[in-house]
Simulated assay, not measured.
Amino acid sequence: MAHAPQPRLDTWATDRAAGVLLGAAVGDALGVPYEFQATLRDDQQPRMIGGGLGPYAPGEYSDDTQMQVCIAKVAADGADLRTPETLDAIATNFQGWLSGGASDVGSQTRAVLGAAGSAPGEPGAAMLAAARSFTAGNDRSAGNGSLMRTGVVAL
């Protein structure tokens, strides 16, 4: 499949992209202690206190941003994110993140990356096959976790 050429970001656009990623990371770090918690009352203000589902320090972002960084490292050089080679690089980064001591990993993410890591073949294709298999067998697999990791794709 032929892909259209990727646009190259100029200095201004690169600066804006870095700002978007930084803003997402800060928002994630602020939200860490509140994931799956009750809505704050009107008299409460969110605070960057760490904790949450992982052993997060105040100001530390969660697995959502950690995985977005795995994608950003591949995209930083202007890679076309639609190619099998690029998907292989992202899948390899995800596996490195998981095996490198990821602080918090959702059950669906762990299941897909675990299945992909033990599958033969190219890492990207194995990740896609594992994700499709998981989704086919789990009617509650359409969460928003994947969306929290894709801001860099739009950039």
Rank of each mutant, 00 (worst) to 15 (best):
A136D: 09
A119M: 15
R132N: 13
I71E: 09
L113D: 05
D43Y: 08
I90F: 02
R110C: 09
A115S: 15
G96L: 01
G78D: 04
A111H: 02
I90M: 05
R41K: 10
P120T: 10
V105T: 15
A142V: 11
P84M: 10
G50M: 00
I90N: 09
D139A: 12
G117N: 04
G50L: 01
T83L: 03
S141L: 00
R132P: 08
R140M: 11
D80K: 03
A116I: 12
S141A: 08
S99K: 13
P55W: 10
I90E: 08
G52I: 03
K73I: 05
A72L: 03
A129L: 13
P55T: 10
D104W: 02
L98S: 13
A136S: 11
A142I: 07
S103Y: 10
R47T: 09
A91Q: 10
L87P: 07
A111T: 05
A136L: 07
M127H: 14
Q108K: 09
V74F: 02
D64W: 00
G101R: 01
Q108M: 07
A57Y: 01
G137E: 06
L40V: 04
Y61P: 03
G124E: 15
T86N: 14
A119P: 12
D77V: 01
R132G: 15
Q68I: 03
C70E: 00
G121A: 06
Q66A: 14
A79M: 02
R41I: 08
D43V: 07
W97Q: 04
